[in-house]
Design a protein around this nucleic acid. Structure first.
Length: 606
DNA sequence: CTTAGGG
DNA sequence: CCCTAAG
């Protein structure tokens, strides 16, 4: 419950595109901002733990014969097979019966033409076959033992031996992008879709260019079923530059595309931060390493920063006119994971275990470490130029690494660390630490509870995060833990939120602190409304709150709303600083009056 | 940008 | 307070 609240706040500002509907406003506002509710979060968490675990290799490539590892899902009880079947039918119906097949197919599965002979006809599963073959098996199943590149936080992460999980196979996106390759603007956002969650939650995020780029690279590297290896550096984007979908065709495309994606109900997830100002990182080579050990040093030289670190790309910060250093981090490296699992474990549980390991790493409160010429830059207060990072110097070797925040690197910088992943709205949180024994031994989650005092904004905001249950290395590490309510940080990490935007970027809108109206303010408000009426909030603002910068006319309107409500309820039910009854009476009177008089002009009430 | 309302 | 549809 507490968690939910905090999560909600933590997710402030996420854009969740909405499925296009005919009823959408003609203004083209095709998106809504929506914070995941508790169910969604639970769904996600569950998904996080089980993602990718269900689809079994499908030897026959027959979509009707997809084998599921677990059926029903041992976590949520969802009958995967049934759901899949539903999805499949739905897809077939939507995509074929309505004539959207060809355009989608050609755009979505370029290789399809070559396989046309295998088609058994529209309306059947021919397209599905190709889709499955291209989408499902190769990436989801065949590459389990291979090094994969995963995009996290907009960067690509190498995960060895990681099963498919939260992160969407890259080629999918590239195909997706090619769906609307009549884009014109190079830095457009590509829309990505997330599949239905087991409980029906559907989440969608927007992809920014960074992601696309990474994913494209990913495709090329994964290459086995590489349909887009020849993809140009500039990925085609949706024709609509904004996340807004005002174009019916466009909407249609997206909607249809969704059907395609939903064919793998539990496949891969990736949340994207949406930021239209973020642009390409093409050609960038900044690589980092992941340091998850408690020591500040990675145990192993093979995790050293790649020599190719360089600065190219672009960083989105249109606001500042200073000489910007443009950085783009191509990838963070995740060290090799070692999994200790009994032979008798199922593939599904192996996947889960790996997923957990990865999730735990990524979910821990990551801290970004900066290395310049191999040396850690510890002083967070220094400017880039002071540190020696300048735009001109493209050869300096700048490296980034991810490390759990409890590393001794910056124990005092929680308040001002620009890379801090969490928001400041939290007052306290308990935090678990993750230690990974790299390259040897098992992965281990140790629990360390430390209360971190973060910026205190609002009083009474004592949200304590539920933390992981005690876990140990030895046994039974596979199942339950991943389902434990993971702090929002986990979501955020998985949500691929670039650290850089967390603070200092106007795009990241922090929820304003709560500032209850004083009686005096209420008095002023009542007086102004009595005079001006309801419905002229800008005037009210000007008249009575012109000096109060933090009170917008919307605030005043809202306050009036609550005042009316307060006046109507019994005094026992009222909270906060009590408003004199006299004022509340005036509120009711004024409200009644202006309800009648439509507040045309400055008629004087009372 | 404002207003009106739902969340 | 936030978010957004409408005007």
């Amino acid at each position: 419950m507490v968690l939910q609240k905090r999560l909600n706040y933590g997710f402030n500002g996420y854009q969740v595109p909405v499925i296009p509907r005919a009823s959408r406003s003609a203004r083209g506002r095709g998106t809504i901002k929506k914070k995941p509710d508790n169910n969604q979060i639970q769904a996600f968490e569950m998904l996080a733990s089980v993602a990718g675990n269900f689809l079994q290799k499908n030897e026959s490539s027959d979509p009707k014969n997809v084998v599921f590892v677990e059926d029903p899902c041992s976590f949520c009880g969802t009958n995967i097979k049934d759901k899949y079947e539903d999805e499949r039918r739905s897809f077939m119906r939507d995509s074929f019966d309505h004539g959207a097949c060809s355009e989608i197919a050609s755009a979505f599965v370029p290789s399809m033409q070559g396989k046309h002979d295998n088609h058994r006809g529209m309306g059947d599963s021919s397209f599905l076959d190709n889709h499955l073959e291209g989408q499902g098996q190769n990436v989801l199943e065949r590459e389990d033992e291979r090094i994969k590149r995963r995009s996290v936080n907009g960067k690509t992460i190498h995960i060895k031996g990681c099963s498919d999980g939260l992160i969407e196979p890259c080629h999918k996106v590239s195909k997706h992008c090619s769906l609307a390759n009549n884009a014109e603007k190079p830095s457009l956002e590509c829309r990505k879709h997330l599949d239905s969650f087991p409980n029906g939650f559907t989440s969608r995020k927007l992809v920014n260019r960074d992601d696309d780029e990474n994913l494209v690279r990913c495709t090329q590297l994964n290459s086995k079923n590489n349909n887009t290896s020849g993809a140009p550096p500039d990925m085609p984007k949706l024709k609509d530059a904004s996340p807004i979908m005002s174009d019916e065709n466009n909407s249609r495309d997206i909607f249809e595309f969704e059907n395609l994606q939903r064919m793998y109900p539990f496949k891969k997830r990736k949340f994207f931060n949406q930021n239209s100002s973020s642009t390409s990182d093409r050609g960038s080579q900044c690589q980092g390493m992941f340091d998850s050990s408690d020591t500040t040093r990675v145990n192993g030289t093979n995790h050293a920063i790649e020599e190719s670190s360089s600065i190219v790309g672009q960083q989105a910060h249109s606001g500042s006119r200073a000489c910007n250093v443009k950085l783009s981090i191509k990838s963070f490296k995740v060290p090799e994971l070692f999994i200790d699992i009994p032979e008798t474990a199922t593939i599904g549980s192996l996947k889960r275990t790996v997923m957990e390991a990865v999730t735990t790493i990524l979910g821990d409160e990551l801290h970004v470490g900066i290395l310049l010429q191999g040396k850690k830059v510890r002083d967070d207060s220094k400017t880039l130029i002071q540190t020696g990072i300048s735009q001109d110097d493209k050869r300096h070797r700048l490296g980034f690494m991810l490390e759990p925040r409890h590393t001794p690197i910056s124990p005092t910088s929680y308040n001002d660390d620009p890379c801090f992943l969490t928001t400041s709205s939290r007052k306290k949180l308990s935090r678990q630490s993750t230690s990974l024994t790299l390259q040897q031994g098992t992965y281990n989650v140790s629990k360390e509870r430390s209360m971190i005092k973060i910026e205190s904004c609002a009083k009474g905001d004592l949200n304590i995060v539920s933390s992981l249950e005690d876990t140990s290395t030895n046994n039974n590490m596979s199942k339950c833990r991943a389902l434990v309510a993971v702090p929002a940080i986990n979501m955020e990490a998985l949500a691929v939120v670039p650290f850089w935007r967390k603070s200092g970027n106007p795009d990241f809108a922090q929820r304003r602190i709560r500032r209850p109206f004083s009686v005096l303010e209420v008095e002023a408000l009542v007086q102004a409304v009595e005079k001006l009426g309801t419905g002229r909030w800008r005037d009210v603002k000007q008249r009575a709150f012109d000096h109060a910068k933090h009170r917008t006319y919307v605030d005043l309107k809202d306050k009036w709303k609550t005042l009316v409500h307060t006046a109507r309820i019994s005094p026992q039910q009222r909270r906060g600083e009590p408003v004199p009854q006299e004022l509340l009476d005036r509120v009711l009177a004024a409200h009644a009056y202006w309800s009648q008089h439509q507040c045309k002009h400055q008629l004087k009430p009372l």
